[in-house]
Nucleic acid binder design. Structure first.
Length: 572
RNA sequence: CGGGAAGUAGCGCAGCUUGGCAGCGCGCCUGCUUUGGGAGCAGGAGGUCGCGGGUUCAAAUCCCGCCUUCCCGACCA
């Protein structure tokens, strides 16, 4: 491609709406342009990178025996009513958009489980056709509450999504692992360090699922990681270790420790309210015990205790009291709940491991407008069950090995789910004849990877102060060939033309800067565009029969002979 | 959805307080000079000052309403 003909305009300054480096550089270098909030055009350079990323995805998924198809981007609303997910529209969990059209209401597909299930269901009638994994690379639409950071979080996005269909759960887990491994290979080829973490499932549903996290300063997520044993989990799913044994794990009253004192704390139901009340006594939220009335998975009324500066994270199946459920348990006074004496009222007490520390707590007094300070574990209140009931943060002990955990800021680059029967039991046509002649339904998995987001992530992780630095696998071109002084030295222009032609014939994708601009402009643009290899041909080099080769990533330079350049490139 | 900030030429910004010819830098066009790290000189083009209403002799500027965009939070496949 001759740069004089390429639709690209580089900007010296970043637009004011771009905050992070990847966004600024992709705009400055002319890869993308914003059309509306969270809606971007891929200019030729941006589309080339997108295609290179897609090529890696296709090669690895095809290698794993997945088959590409293309599902519609717009779906009849009825399909979503059948799965029951239409009820989630407009919610944060499933911010779908609909359009009125001839033929009824259509959904701009935010995800494709419904469509793929009925599509494959209509074609598969026998276990002999399984296992089967299909995938597509498709545009999806999400009415994001808050698009952010350029391509990192958009309302229209390119996604690669795969779906596996198996005869039963065991077979599904094999397919899951196959795609999982293919995903790992894709990230490796893109030069991204990815950590698969156990995660919560959200609106997609299903049991086991993993998020593929790329550590990044611009990430919107965090995951928990143990540098010692390798444990990794999303913040929504992570647990921490602690004192699993009964008794007084680090608690207990020291000799002579002060007894409990009751305080009149009118209209102070919250943690922050109470901290404010004790303002002049250097009390922080960490000195308070957060006490939450819940029903555990068996439906037993339970009081969950955790340090006041932590966010609660309840185990699956546990739920908070509704307001009208407090009436049946008079020992639990909403806003002023405390642990003392609850066990005598048939309330179980479950405490987060973090509560097992020495020293007094400030707790609710189980009496409206009153709190108690100086409450000591085992002296003033007991605990029936220890567990991980708070979101994990940096420094908490690992649930496997007890070493301190790290909290890593990250971008969710992909998410895979073992769906099981969630969709096959509600969508029509999901049945097939099993080996024993009985009727069965698919056990499914689904696997989503944000392709356009990957562009932002790769750019974010590969840039310097001068511009983008694409890994060889995804750069828009292989070589950026700059001819210097072409305006006054026609012999250089002619030699560069011939070099460009020869490289093109050899299959090297070259961006040829044939513009009549100063060398400084060409160098600056080459640095900004970030094509992996820069080749410079000037009058001096031409006289000696050499062209300059330079790695954008490392800055390594060497001279190649003009005549042998094709062979030398192939060998390097 | 809550909090904050901002909309003036393609991009970055000043002008608004105190109403009076719409500006600067970069970019763009023409010519000449220049040419290994974003050149110089001369000339030129380019505007619904986000939109609507109001006040005024007069509004980018003051008042009211709306829209858009970005940041923080909530939320998130």
């Amino acid at each position: 491609m001759r740069m004089s003909r390429l639709l690209v305009r580089t900007l010296r300054e970043a637009p004011a709406d771009a905050e992070v480096a990847s966004h600024q550089l992709l705009v400055r270098a002319g890869y993308i342009r914003r059309l509306a909030s969270g809606v971007y055009t891929y200019l030729p350079l941006g589309l080339r990178v997108l295609h290179r990323v897609e090529r890696v995805i296709r090669e690895e998924l095809d290698r794993a025996d997945c088959q590409e198809l293309l599902l519609p981007a717009m779906h009849p609303l009825e399909l979503w009513e059948q799965s029951g997910r239409a009820a989630l529209f407009g919610s944060d969990a499933l911010p779908a958009m609909t359009v009125q059209a001839r033929g009824g209401t259509f959904v701009l597909g935010p995800t494709h489980e419904e469509v793929v299930t009925v599509t494959v269901g209509a074609e598969v009638e026998s276990y002999r056709q399984l296992p089967l994994t299909v995938y597509q690379i498709q545009v999806k639409f999400r009415d994001e509450a808050r698009p952010r950071f350029g391509l990192l979080r958009t309302r229209e996005l390119v996604m690669a999504d795969a779906y596996s269909f198996d005869v039963d759960k065991e077979a599904m887990q094999v397919s899951y692992r196959t795609v999982f491994d293919a995903y790992l290979r894709i990230f490796a080829r893109l030069g991204l360090e990815v950590t698969p973490v156990e995660a919560a499932s959200g609106a997609i549903g299903g049991d086991v699922n993993h998020e593929f996290m790329v550590a990044s300063a611009v990430g919107e997520d965090h995951f928990v990681s143990c540098p010692s044993c390798g444990y990794a989990a999303s913040v929504e799913a992570a647990t921490k270790g602690g004192a699993p044994t009964a008794g007084a794990p680090g608690g207990g009253a020291a000799d002579g420790e002060a007894p409990m004192v009751t305080h009149h704390t009118p209209d102070r139901p919250g943690i922050d309210d109470v901290v404010a009340f004790f303002d002049d006594r250097r009390v922080t939220a960490a000195d308070l015990l957060k006490s939450m009335a819940v029903f555990d998975a068996q439906g037993r009324p339970t009081l969950v205790l955790l340090a006041g500066d932590r966010e609660a994270l309840l185990p699956a199946g546990w739920r908070l009291f509704e307001d009208d459920e407090f009436a049946a348990h008079p020992s639990l006074v909403k806003g002023y709940i405390g642990p003392a004496g609850q066990q005598q009222h048939a309330i179980r007490v479950a405490a987060d491991f973090g509560v097992a520390r020495p020293g007094p707590w400030i707790v609710g007094a189980n009496r409206t407008d009153h709190h108690v300070s100086g409450a000591v574990l085992d002296r003033d209140f007991g605990v029936d069950e220890w567990g991980s009931f708070a979101e994990v943060t940096s420094g908490d002990p690992c649930p496997r090995c007890g070493e301190p955990l790290e909290l890593v800021r990250s971008v969710e680059a992909a998410h895979t789910f073992q769906l099981g029967y969630k969709y096959s039991e509600v969508m029509p046509g999901s049945n097939f004849v099993a080996e024993d002649g009985s009727e069965a339904i698919f056990s499914m998995g689904c696997y989503g990877m944000g392709v356009s987001r990957l562009l932002a992530v790769v750019a974010e992780e590969n840039h310097d102060e001068r511009g983008l630095v694409w890994p060889a696998e995804v750069g828009p071109f292989d070589v950026h060939l700059a001819a210097l002084g072409t305006g006054r030295a026609p012999e250089v222009a002619a030699a560069a033309d011939r070099l460009y032609e020869r490289l093109a014939v050899a299959g090297v994708e070259v961006l040829y800067d044939d513009r009549d601009v100063s060398p400084g402009v060409k160098f600056a643009d080459a640095d900004l565009l970030g094509i992996p290899v820069r080749m410079v041909l000037g009058a001096k080099g031409l006289a000696r029969g050499v062209v300059e080769w330079r790695s954008r990533a490392t800055g390594e330079e060497r001279e190649l002979s003009i005549d042998g350049v094709v062979e030398e490139l192939a060998g390097s």
